[in-house]
């Protein structure tokens, strides 16, 4: 796969990134998704089915990059609550907590629950750190899921599929879906017509953004192969705490920002991990990202604007 993070356009877009609490509002118009950053959605007049994606809330994190992750999550949820059009649900693409502690999950549930929005989620690697490696997550959120927590549902004319790629890793350096989940995915997709818009969401990127940092999934190609016959496929991930986007044929890839803290861009630092930015920038760099997926040509239009005032 081609990594377009380092194209000039990508670099320019990344410079416009807004760090800190933010969510992405996704709207389905005729089943075709389009997105914009939550802070910019107040004036939006797009009609259709919408949902909000948030990611990497890391409740429990208390280091220098952000010692109030509950606060920035609350700010994000307040922005969502202020939307002119109420989204149908929240989609959380993992790392709900920082260390999988019960209190962290409790706190996250309390904060997110206050939004009174239905929540669909998948685990991040920080959510499966209990002694039995993910059983606590499943006990809390696994109702109606299969295997390690994967599942699908229909909404707004699209078919949504939540995948788990943070468990049963093999030490190859990347995330992993595994044969059982891939077989389930094949069966799930087999029942859908090619005209059904597909929305895939998982924590780790399903395209290799930075292999040396583990930002990819070792067997994602097998999953993507199953999606080639569909006209519209949108793949939403988190994990890297910054926006990265790519269009490849009918596939549109999009990673969301964190609500907790930024991470460095690939190859700009010795290692990934929480990035400390000046405190006043954490919120002033809240930004606006508009993404439109045009159904016919499957083209992704992106506009990034900071919200600093």
């Amino acid at each position: 796969m081609i990594n377009d993070l380092h194209s000039p356009d990508r670099r320019r877009a990344l410079k416009c990134m807004a760090w800190g609490g933010s969510g992405v509002l996704w709207t389905l118009v005729g089943g075709v998704p389009a997105s914009k950053l939550v802070g910019a959605a107040h004036g939006g007049t797009t009609k259709g089915f919408s949902f909000v994606q948030i990611s990497d809330t890391h409740i429990g994190f208390d280091k220098a990059a952000n010692n109030d992750v509950a606060g920035t999550l609350s700010e994000t949820l307040a922005k969502i609550g202020g939307l002119s059009e109420r989204p149908a649900f929240l989609l959380h693409t993992g790392d709900i907590t920082h260390l999988s502690k019960p209190k962290e999950f409790d706190d996250a549930d309390q904060l997110i629950g206050a939004s009174r929005l239905a929540v669909h989620r998948v685990p991040g690697e920080h959510d499966v750190l209990d002694e039995r490696t993910g059983e606590a997550y499943l006990a809390r959120y696994g109702k109606g899921t299969r295997g390690d927590g994967w599942y699908s549902f229909d909404a707004g004319g699209a078919h949504f599929i939540g995948l788990v790629n943070v468990l049963r890793l093999e030490g190859t350096g990347l995330g992993r879906l595994g044969a059982e989940q891939l077989a389930w995915l094949a069966a799930d997709l087999a029942a859908r017509s090619a005209s059904t818009p597909i929305v895939i969401f998982a924590h780790m990127p399903l395209w290799t953004i930075a292999g040396e940092w583990g930002w990819g999934t070792q067997d994602s190609a097998q999953a993507l192969q199953l999606l080639t016959r569909f006209g519209s496929v949108t793949i939403l991930n988190g994990h890297i705490h910054q926006i990265a986007q790519k269009v490849e044929g009918n596939l549109v890839f999009h990673t969301a920002r964190s609500t907790a803290f930024p991470q460095p861009e690939p190859r700009t630092a010795k290692a990934p991990g929480p990035k400390v930015v000046p405190a006043e920038q954490l919120r002033s760099f809240l930004g606006l990202t508009s993404v439109t997926i045009r159904g016919g040509a499957h083209r992704l239009a992106i506009a990034d604007t900071t919200l600093a005032r």
């Binding site: 690697e125 490696t133 030490g171 190859t172 350096g173 995330g175 990934p272």
Partner: peptide, 12 residues
């Protein structure tokens, strides 16, 4: 014994 980090599998 070969090992890795279960959170960051690029670490071996």
């Amino acid at each position: 014994i070969t090992y890795f980090c279960g959170l960051h599998p690029q670490m071996t």
